[in-house]
Design a protein around this nucleic acid. Sequence first.
DNA 1: TTGTAAGCGTTATCAG
DNA 2: CTGATAACGCTTACAA
Lengths: 336, 336
Amino acid sequence: MITIKDVARQAGVSVATVSRVYNDSANVRPHTRARVQAMARELGYSPHGAARSLITSRTHTLGLLLPDLYGEFFSEVIRGVDQAAQREGFHLLVSSARAGGPSLEDALRSMRGRVDGLIVMSPDLDAGASRRSLPHGFPVVMLNCPPSDAGYDSIGIANYEGAVAMTRHLAGLGHTRIAIIKGAEGNFDAAERLRGYRAVVRDLGLDPSPALELSGDFSEASGHAAALRLHALVPRPTAVFAANDGMAVGALSALREAGLRLPHDIALGGFDDIPLARYLEPALTSVHVPIGVLGEHATACLFAGLRATEPTESRREVLATTLVVRRSCGAQGGPG
Amino acid sequence: MITIKDVARQAGVSVATVSRVYNDSANVRPHTRARVQAMARELGYSPHGAARSLITSRTHTLGLLLPDLYGEFFSEVIRGVDQAAQREGFHLLVSSARAGGPSLEDALRSMRGRVDGLIVMSPDLDAGASRRSLPHGFPVVMLNCPPSDAGYDSIGIANYEGAVAMTRHLAGLGHTRIAIIKGAEGNFDAAERLRGYRAVVRDLGLDPSPALELSGDFSEASGHAAALRLHALVPRPTAVFAANDGMAVGALSALREAGLRLPHDIALGGFDDIPLARYLEPALTSVHVPIGVLGEHATACLFAGLRATEPTESRREVLATTLVVRRSCGAQGGPG
DNA sequence: TTGTAAGCGTTATCAG
DNA sequence: CTGATAACGCTTACAA
């Protein structure tokens, strides 16, 4: 591989000069600059990233640590982050901490010296250990994580408020027995959405029966299974709030297979408003989450941290969610 | 930030010993190893990636260059690549070469010294320039690119065969005026799919009218627009083959808004079989593309190249596509 | 305006 | 089994 030395030798200048050309240092005679550039092009030279980072201690790369890469949610986050990063000329080192792969801790460790900052999404409530493994004084933004005691910037979405809005909406349509299909155990978002549901059930005096809280894990399959259990309840709930759209999709097919018609026989609402939601039949009422924006804001927040000369107060930003009413809840096109 | 020197000093050993511990060199006394590890943990040390890469000239990172990050297709590719990369302990440096961002050439250049190999997806037919900018003798796998004269490994999908299967299927249902909504101009996949369509039109003596070939660019909006133009044709085609599912989605809503019922009034087929396809109403007949597998195979191919000690013959792998018949084409549930 | 040379944090080659 | 020390490719004072 061809290095700065080769270019320097061939162009008849010192390595310092070649370096200056590549860092647009003003102090280079136009003629010299041209010769260097010509030679570099001819030789097909490009600077060695690692060597550069080593001396400048800046990588122009930003690490993105996700719990998984499956589904539209993560894909949208990546897109948002990439977009914002690219505007600043930054690269993206993506890593997923799926079960079976390296632990969050390992992933963090192996990113040392390869990234200038980190966006970490780790919605598990017991992520204290991983937090401790974050290098101290290193720019980090937590995404959709429990509000942490540690001093990291964090950004999340209005889970509680979204769940409240959805549950209230269903109640407003006349439903009093509203079931919820819960998200993954130990997941912060899931816990918040459940909290919102319960608050409304309590405040509005709806049926508080524990049987109406079905467990799920955010997967389509778990939504399907929960809907089956729900269908067997006596009396059957007249509305279901799935804690994410993936489970709503599973529930939708299960309910239909069970012979129920939506929204006539039962109303359904989801959470996230993934692109798929509006294409379902009936189109899915959901709580819209600006996923791409979440990624963009996280990135902006990270850059702010990168530019800060001295440690600042840690901030927490919460993105608003909005209820999107479609046909699956029966507010339009049929009685609930 | 804390370096290997700090650990060495505090542990009372040389940096060489610390390094040996981290590279599990066998030649370290268990007691020494333990002391080093303890000190490293206490200090929160982790090796500096860039420094490591500089001397070993291996980054344990793999570059993935995509034309865009929008949509389920790319998301699935990323997932497939990540999965295969993670199995080998590799990281993923993702970059999109969208318009407005850096050019493919720039992106490639800036990856020098940061990755051990590259997976490049650049379906534009005129990507000759970018190909020349690839460092020579560097492991590269081309994804969904035109079969290149250059000596790179490449992997793609059976576009032509898939389009043939879809068009034949529609013809087999009795359609003779089959329209196509074409993919982006200058795109290799689009060209191949069109070629497959035309071959069947010719071979089966279907209506070859050029008016039946509507332009599109793979976007949902372009599918919508094309369907509107198509709807105005006299006589109206009885079947439409959209060159990807995104356009099929757009076409579906346009046709429905125009008052047509699918598949009764017009049959529709897509390409890619994105997850969304089976949730549409009616469910979309499509050509299934194993997108995740595409990413995995590309990665496997890259690793093979990485391990090769001497340059090997460049290989081309083509993944089979399969027709997935659902209700939108009328083969099931209604006359075409 | 240009060149010389000292690192950046590792690993690898030698000695011991 | 362990310790010096020379790279790796680059940037950046400091000199010239």
